[in-house]
Computed example of a mutant assay.
Amino acid sequence: MAEKIFTVSGMSCGHCAAGVTEEIVEVPGVFEVDVDVRAGLVIVRGESVDDGAVRAAIVEAGYEVAEVVRQAAA
């Protein structure tokens, strides 16, 4: 399973985290999403996950992706 970490700006509460998670879990191949609002990080775990689709899901939730911090096999 691969892990990708995205920096996301604009999140400030648990409601933000829930909205981002709700959008990302719909992306094909995503198994797990962890959101650290305080750090502005979204951690996505899954197989063959398309970065563009995750970015689009984050934007759909109303937030901006600054960058992919790390991609690694978990």
Rank of each mutant, 00 (worst) to 15 (best):
L41T: 08
A61E: 12
V35W: 06
S9T: 10
A18Q: 12
V35D: 10
V49E: 04
V68F: 01
V20D: 08
G46F: 02
M11Y: 09
M1G: 07
V65A: 14
A56Y: 01
G10R: 05
E67H: 13
V20W: 01
E23N: 04
C16Y: 14
K4N: 07
T7M: 12
A17Q: 11
R70K: 10
V54M: 05
V35L: 06
C13P: 06
K4L: 09
C16I: 14
A53M: 13
I58Q: 03
D50G: 11
I43L: 12
E67M: 10
Y63H: 07
V42Y: 01
R45P: 11
E3F: 12
V35T: 08
C16S: 15
A2E: 15
V25G: 10
G40K: 04
Q71N: 13
V42T: 07
D36K: 15
Y63I: 13
G10H: 10
G52Y: 01
E67Q: 15
Q71D: 14
I24H: 11
V30S: 06
T7P: 07
V49R: 00
D34F: 14
V49M: 04
A61S: 15
Y63Q: 09
G14V: 08
V42H: 01
E22K: 14
R55N: 03
V20R: 07
V69E: 15
F31K: 14
Q71W: 12
D50R: 05
P28T: 01
A61Y: 00
V44R: 05
I24Q: 00
A61P: 06
A53D: 02
V35N: 10
A18P: 01
V27F: 01
V25K: 06
A53H: 07
V44I: 12
E22C: 03
S48A: 01
D50T: 04
R55A: 09
V69H: 10
S12E: 08
E32A: 09
C16F: 13
Y63A: 01
V35E: 00
R38Q: 05
E22V: 00
V42Q: 11
S48D: 06
E32C: 14
A57W: 06
T21Q: 07
V8H: 01
A61K: 07
V8R: 03
E32F: 07
D34H: 13
A73V: 05
R38S: 13
V25F: 02
A18R: 06
A66N: 15
E23W: 05
I24P: 03
